[in-house]
Design a protein around this nucleic acid. Structure first.
Lengths: 252, 252
DNA sequence: GGCCATCAAACTGCATGCAATTGCGGCGCC
DNA sequence: GGCGCCGCAATTGCATGCAGTTTGATGGCC
């Protein structure tokens, strides 16, 4: 066990971060769909810890935007609205632009092979489930961010990439990952060549096309969370409690 | 009390978020300097809650990068290295660019007056302590972000702005806030006029100059955390425990 | 048949208690 | 006099317990 140790930032202790990692992964692989319930008891039992720890983990994930926490209510996997999804992609484009700008022409040989290896893995995973492909594609971007050795950038890129994953599972149709893989290869090549302008454009285009493939339209019906659809109509309500529908059947 | 209610994102419950807000404010006003210790007991006692809650709050702040948490050790206010500070400003420039791009020409009259009122407050605070000026200047940027009504953007801009505050208290000399105030006014004017290119340039320049005023040089001596200075030399160490100096007198 | 009140189970909010680890002051040794 | 070692106080890591809230189901009433 390489004991990568918990990176300085966040990831408080041990058990908590283990649970966080597990849940994060489950979420981005869509084992846990948006809206899925996450009761503290069940989590604690599943991971062999007390509710206290499970609760703490949920708090962390909420801070990352992967989980929604409302007072006295069961935590659920976040269900970003379409607008939030769009915003997340906008932010992501900016942040990853920063990443490639820092990296262009500065990669070592071993870093380049590491990236190529990763894309090879993505390639091999094409036969498998979509979930794994999506996870690997996301991890490619995180890997890139890590190479900047800027902890802040790593954290933000990771978070926002995870959020985009969530989005994908909400709004995206089964999508072809091939072009994404080719785009990854192109980005590596341009990074190695040190062509900053080119790599910026590639990354921008890559993320933009991912976003567009995912977020073709507000898809009000498939957005699947009734409350989001109704949200605009609730603006009139002045009270804190946003909307109070007579028992609306939520998922689950 | 306007009962602003806890915004959907993060900020779990009540007591926890109260503590978070209090600590955040104390940190950005430099009542708590970087490196200051934050024992769970003391926090709990001070805020009239149990350690459990104080601990949870520290976890949230750690997720935001304001607090550093290490296993079995007392939490301390984060002490960003010079490089991290620089990175934070880079990210901030990108994010706030996004903000003003979204806002240019889209502000309502009342929003514009709200912004002007805020800058007036900044102006009035010029006679007071530096701490308040810094806080108000930071809050101006957060106010701007809030007007995008993009929760994600608000969260990221807030976080990174707070981090930059931390930085300022670490590396900055007593600085003049006047030009910053004028720059704020200029940004509002350009936003109102809807001149996107102009406002982008203004914001970029504004943040860049703030960064440069603060981060003139690595200032190795004044960076004041011996451990950061030694960090590059510790890369050789393979163990998890990064560095083990014979009792080095840390602050406090 | 549909609607509302009532109640129990489920779940969260929080405090407290115990075990484990760390930090630090004093002691002995070189 | 300085350096390293040991033991105690301080502090964290975590589980459990109790109180308050929500959920949703059952039964009575219109």
């Amino acid at each position: 066990m390489p004991a990568r140790a918990t990176s300085k930032t966040s990831e408080s202790s041990d058990k908590v971060s283990v649970i966080c990692r597990a849940l994060r992964r489950a979420i981005i692989e869509q084992a846990l769909e948006p809206g899925a319930k996450l009761p503290e008891d069940s989590l604690g039992e599943r991971f062999g810890v007390s509710r206290t720890i499970a609760r703490h983990a949920l708090g962390q994930l909420a801070a990352e935007g992967l989980v929604e926490l409302r007072r006295n209510r069961i935590a659920v996997v976040a269900t970003p609205s379409w607008k939030e999804a769009r915003d997340a992609f906008d932010i992501r484009i900016q942040l990853e632009g920063l990443v490639v700008r820092q990296l262009a022409g500065k990669l070592t040989g071993s870093q380049i092979s590491e990236l190529n290896d990763h894309v090879d893995a993505e390639d091999r995973a094409r036969g498998g489930t979509d979930a794994v492909s999506i996870r690997l594609a996301t991890e490619f971007h995180i890997l890139l961010a890590q190479m900047t050795s800027s902890p802040i950038l790593v954290r933000y890129v990771s978070e926002v990439a995870y959020r985009c994953c969530l989005t994908l599972s909400l709004y995206s149709r089964p999508h072809s990952t091939e072009c994404a893989i080719n785009e990854h290869r192109a980005i590596i090549a341009a990074l190695a060549k040190g062509d900053e302008a080119k790599v910026m454009e590639l990354m921008h285009h890559h993320l933009d096309s991912v976003a567009n493939r995912a977020l073709v339209a507000p898809t009000p019906q498939r957005g699947r969370d009734l409350l989001d659809i109704l949200a605009p109509y609730a603006d009139e309500v002045t009270s804190d409690r946003v909307v109070k529908l007579p028992k609306v059947a939520r998922r689950g």
